[in-house]
Design a protein around this nucleic acid. Structure first.
Length: 768
DNA sequence: CAGTGAGCGAGCTTCCGCTTGACTT
C-alpha cells in the first residue's frame, strides 16, 4: 500500500517535490496532458451537442497504466497539476482515466516549488473545478473545429498538407502585413544638422561640444541656406538645464522576455533558448521555463537580497514585486529565475552557462536599486536664424542595477553615446568648429525576428509560453514563412560640411536594408493568408483570441454553458466553410504581367505544382506554354516583367571545359553549374545571368578539391565502397547505404576486409 | 539533390497546449 500518491505535470518537478515531502509521499508525473481528442472525424460529436471523444495516445498508454496501478494501491491521490485552465483539465482527465474515487482524491496547487508552498498546499486541498475544466474543453474543441475545418479547405483550394489555426494563421498574417507595409513604405529624405563647438576645457586645452539642430531640413537647398547663415553667425549658450533621471530594472524573465533577450544578447533562436533552458531546468539550476509570470517567491527575493548586500552593499538593494501586464496571463508558475541565487555561474556547455548567467543577472538586477543619472541639456542660439542647437548628455551618478544588467531593445537606430558635456556658462560665446548637414532617410518598418514575433503574439494574447517556439517552427515548416538574411542596397546621400569659411559638398554611399535572420512571408504564406482573410475575417482578426478568451472566462466562472458558446461560434463558422467550399476559386496567386514581345503571348506568374513559376502563353494554346521557376527571394506579388524575362534566359551555355559543355541554370536548390552531368552550386555572390566560363571552371575545381577532403579512403577493387567524412564524423558508404565506424578504429587505417566486416554486421543498428 | 508544370485516383495531410525524449552514419 502507498499512503499518498502525488501527481504533477513535469518529472523534474516530481523529483524536487519528492525530496521535500519525504517517505510518506510517492510523487509521479503525467508528462503533460494524458488524453486528447480522437483524430478521426474531428473527435467531436458535432450534432450531439459537441461531445468530445477523448482517447489516450499510443505513446502515453504505458505511462497511464502505471499511474492507474499506483493509484489503485494508494490511500489518497493528490492531483497537483498546475493552477490554470490546462492544469485543471489534466487533473480532471487523470481523475476520469485513472478511475479515481472522489473521497480518496484531493486537488492541490502551488505556484512555486518551495517546501513551504508545498506544505501549505497540502493543507488547502479542494475539489476539481468543473467550470474551469469546461472552459478548457471549450478552448480545445474550438481550436480543433477551426483547425480541422479550415485545413482541409486549404487542401482543396490551395495545396495539400497545408494548415490553418487560430494561432498560426494570425502569426503568418503579422508577417504578411509587415511585408506589405514595407513594400508600400515611402522613405522620406531629410537633412540632419550637427554642430561641433570648441570649448576651453579649463586646463588650457580645448574640447568639443557636439550638438544637433532642433530642426531638420526637407531638401538640399534649405540645408545649404542654413549653413550659409551659420558661416557668418555667432553661437551663444542660451540655456543650461540639469535634471535628475532615474532608470529602473526590468522585471524577471518570463518565457517571452527570455526568448527576446537571448535572441538580442546571445543570438539564440527561440528553439535554442527553450532547449537550453530545458537542460538548466532538468538539472535543477533554474525554475520552470514555460511561464507568463514575473512573480518571484519570498525565498528568491530573500536570497537575492543577501547576495546583493554581500556583493555590492546595502545601498544597492531594493526589494520589488512585479505584476504582469500581459494579456491572458495565467501565472501558474514563478518567473524564470536561478534556483540558487548565490550561484552566479554554472558548469556545463557554453550555451547553458551563457543563458544561466543572463537569467541570474536579470533576476538579481530586478531586486536592485534604480540607477541615478543627471541629464544635461544645453541650448545654443544662432545669431542669424531662429533655429537652435541642442546638446544633451547624461552622467551616471549612481549605477545601481546597471552594475549587473541592462536590457536591450530591438531598436536598430544608432544612438550616439552621450557622456559628460564640457563645462560652459549661459551667455558664453562658442567657437564654431564644424557644422554638417547630412542627408538621412526615414527608416522602413522593422521586419520581425522570431523573438520580436513572440513579443507581438504575447501582446495580442495569441499562443502560450509552451507554444511560442513550436508555433514559430510550424509556420516555417509549412513554408508560410522563411527566416533568412537578405542583402540590402546602396544609396547615395549628400553631405554638406561647413568648416572655416567654406562649404563643401560630398556624396556618401550608404548601405541600407540589410536583414539578418528576419522572417519573410513566402508566396504560399501570402496566398493562404489572403484566402483566409477573404473568407474568415473574424478568425483572422487580431482580437479574435481575446474575445473568445472572454467567453472562456465566463464559462470558467459558471455563467455560460460551454456547448452553448461553441454552438454560437460554430454555426456561422461552418456555414462559411460550406460557402467557401462551393463558391471560391482555387487560389494560385496568378498575376498577368504583360506580353512577350516575340510571340505576343501573355506573360504571367502563379503557384505551380512545384512552387512559384513564370509562364509564357496559356495551357489552352496549341503550343505548350514555356515555364520557368522563380528564384529565391522573388515573390509573385512584387516580381516585375523585366525580372520574369530574365528567368527565360536560363539555362545558358557559357563555354567548354575538358571538352564538355558548361551549362548555367537554376534548380530547386538555387543557381548551379552543370558539367559532365554533375552539379556545382553557385556562390551567393555569383549572378547566373552574367557568370562566365572562367568563374564557372573555378567553381568546378573548388568543389573537386572539397570532395577530395571528404573522401578519406577508397579501394580500387571495390569502387562502390567509400570511407567518407560527413556531418557526424567519418563513415562508410556502400551501395547507397551508410555504416557507422566503431569509435575505437582510425578510419584511414581500415582495410577493405575490415570495412566489409562492419557492413556485414550492419553497423550499429538503430534501437527501437 | 538540381531538368518537372498531363491526368487520374487512392490515401494521407490538419488544430492548440501540456509534457519529454530520440539521436542521425
Amino acid at each position: 500500500m502507498i499512503e499518498n500518491l502525488v501527481i504533477v505535470e513535469s518529472p523534474a518537478k516530481a523529483k524536487t517535490i519528492e525530496r521535500f515531502l519525504g517517505e510518506a509521499y510517492t510523487v509521479r508525473s503525467s508528462f503533460g496532458h494524458i488524453r486528447d481528442l480522437a483524430k478521426k472525424n474531428l473527435g467531436i460529436d458535432v450534432d450531439g451537442g459537441f461531445v468530445p471523444q477523448y482517447i489516450v495516445p499510443a505513446d502515453k498508454k504505458k505511462m497511464v497504466k502505471e499511474l492507474k496501478d499506483l493509484a489503485k494501491k494508494s490511500n489518497v491521490v493528490w492531483l497537483a497539476t498546475d493552477e490554470d485552465r490546462e492544469g485543471e483539465a489534466i487533473a480532471w482527465h487523470l481523475f476520469e482515466e485513472l478511475g479515481l474515487e472522489k473521497e480518496k482524491t484531493r486537488r492541490i496547487v502551488f505556484h512555486e516549488i518551495t517546501k513551504n508552498a508545498i506544505l501549505d498546499a497540502l493543507k488547502n486541498a479542494r475539489h476539481i473545478d468543473t467550470d474551469l475544466v469546461n472552459a478548457q474543453q471549450a478552448r480545445r474543441v474550438l481550436d480543433r473545429l477551426v483547425g480541422f475545418e479550415l485545413s482541409p479547405l486549404l487542401w482543396k483550394k490551395v495545396k495539400p498538407s497545408l494548415s490553418a489555426g487560430r494561432v498560426q494563421s494570425v502569426a503568418v498574417k503579422l508577417i504578411v502585413e509587415k511585408e506589405r507595409n514595407i513594400q508600400q513604405f515611402q522613405a522620406k529624405r531629410y537633412f540632419r544638422v550637427t554642430g561641433n563647438f570648441a570649448v576651453p576645457d579649463g586646463k588650457g586645452g580645448r574640447t568639443i561640444l557636439k550638438a544637433e539642430l532642433s530642426k531638420r531640413f526637407d531638401n538640399l537647398e534649405t540645408a545649404r541656406e542654413f549653413l550659409a547663415i551659420c558661416q557668418t553667425s555667432d553661437f551663444r549658450v542660451d540655456n543650461i538645464e540639469k535634471k535628475p533621471v532615474k532608470k529602473s530594472p526590468a522585471a524577471p524573465f518570463t518565457t517571452s522576455t527570455l526568448q527576446q533577450e537571448a535572441s538580442r544578447k546571445l543570438g539564440f533562436s527561440v528553439n535554442q533558448t527553450m532547449s537550453v533552458a530545458q537542460k538548466l531546468y532538468e538539472s535543477g539550476k533554474i525554475t520552470y521555463m514555460r511561464t507568463d509570470s514575473v512573480n518571484l517567491s519570498k525565498l528568491a527575493i530573500g536570497t537575492a537580497a543577501e547576495q546583493i548586500k554581500e556583493a555590492f552593499g546595502e545601498e544597492y538593494h531594493k526589494s520589488r514585486n512585479f505584476t504582469t501586464k500581459s494579456k491572458g496571463a495565467q501565472e501558474a508558475h514563478e518567473a524564470i529565475r536561478p534556483t540558487y541565487m548565490n550561484q552566479p555561474s554554472v558548469d556545463g556547455p557554453r550555451a547553458e552557462q551563457r543563458l544561466y548567467e543572463l537569467i541570474w543577472k536579470r533576476t538579481l538586477a530586478s531586486q536592485m536599486s534604480e540607477a541615478k543619472l543627471e541629464k544635461t541639456v544645453i541650448t545654443i542660439m544662432v545669431s542669424g536664424a531662429p533655429e537652435r542647437f541642442v546638446a544633451s548628455g547624461e552622467v551616471l551618478k549612481f549605477d545601481g542595477f546597471l552594475k549587473v544588467y541592462m536590457e536591450s531593445t530591438d531598436d536598430e537606430q544608432e544612438e550616439e553615446t552621450k557622456g559628460l558635456l564640457p563645462p560652459v556658462k549661459v551667455d558664453e560665446l562658442l567657437d564654431r568648429d564644424e557644422i554638417e548637414a547630412t542627408e538621412r532617410s526615414t527608416p522602413q518598418p522593422a521586419r520581425y525576428t522570431e523573438a520580436s514575433l513572440v513579443k507581438k503574439m504575447e501582446e495580442l494574447g495569441i499562443g502560450r509560453p509552451s507554444t511560442y517556439a513550436p508555433t514559430i517552427s510550424t509556420v516555417q515548416n509549412r513554408e508560410y514563412v522563411v527566416k533568412e538574411n537578405r542583402e540590402g542596397g546602396v544609396r547615395e546621400m549628400v553631405q554638406l560640411k561647413l568648416k572655416g569659411d567654406s562649404i563643401k559638398q560630398e556624396v556618401i554611399n550608404e548601405k541600407f536594408g540589410f536583414e539578418k535572420s528576419k522572417l519573410f512571408p513566402t508566396d504560399i504564406g501570402t496566398i493562404v493568408n489572403d484566402f483566409l482573410e477573404a473568407n474568415f475575417q473574424n478568425i483572422m482578426d487580431f482580437n479574435f483570441t481575446a474575445s473568445v478568451e472572454k467567453e472562456f472566462d465566463e464559462i470558467a466562472v459558471g455563467v455560460v454553458d460551454w456547448p452553448t458558446m461553441i454552438e454560437r461560434f460554430y454555426t456561422p463558422f461552418h456555414e462559411k466553410v460550406d460557402t467557401a467550399t462551393e463558391t471560391s476559386e482555387r487560389s494560385k496567386g496568378e498575376r498577368i504581367l504583360g506580353e512577350d514581345p516575340e510571340s505576343g503571348k501573355p506573360i504571367s506568374v502563379k503557384i505551380g505544382r512545384f512552387g512559384p513559376i513564370a509562364q509564357i502563353g496559356e495551357a489552352s494554346d496549341e503550343e505548350k506554354p514555356k515555364f520557368a521557376s522563380l528564384l529565391k527571394g522573388q515573390s509573385l506579388e512584387t516580381i516585375t516583367l523585366e525580372e520574369v524575362m530574365d528567368l527565360f534566359r536560363l539555362p545558358r551555355e557559357v563555354g567548354k571545359f575538358e571538352d564538355e559543355d558548361i551549362i548555367i541554370s537554376v534548380g530547386k536548390y538555387g543557381p548551379y553549374v552543370r558539367h559532365k552531368s554533375k552539379f556545382f552550386s553557385l556562390a551567393n555572390t555569383d549572378d547566373p545571368y552574367t557568370i562566365e566560363s572562367d568563374r564557372a571552371i573555378e567553381i568546378i575545381k573548388e568543389k573537386r578539391t572539397q570532395d577530395e577532403k571528404r573522401n578519406i579512403k577508397q579501394f580500387d577493387e571495390e569502387p562502390d565502397l567509400l570511407i567518407l567524412n560527413g556531418r557526424y564524423g567519418p563513415y562508410i558508404s556502400f551501395k547507397k547505404k551508410n555504416y557507422r565506424i566503431p569509435k575505437s578504429r582510425k578510419p584511414e587505417e581500415l582495410t577493405l576486409e575490415e570495412c566489409r566486416e562492419i557492413i556485414e554486421k550492419g553497423g550499429t543498428k538503430r534501437k527501437k
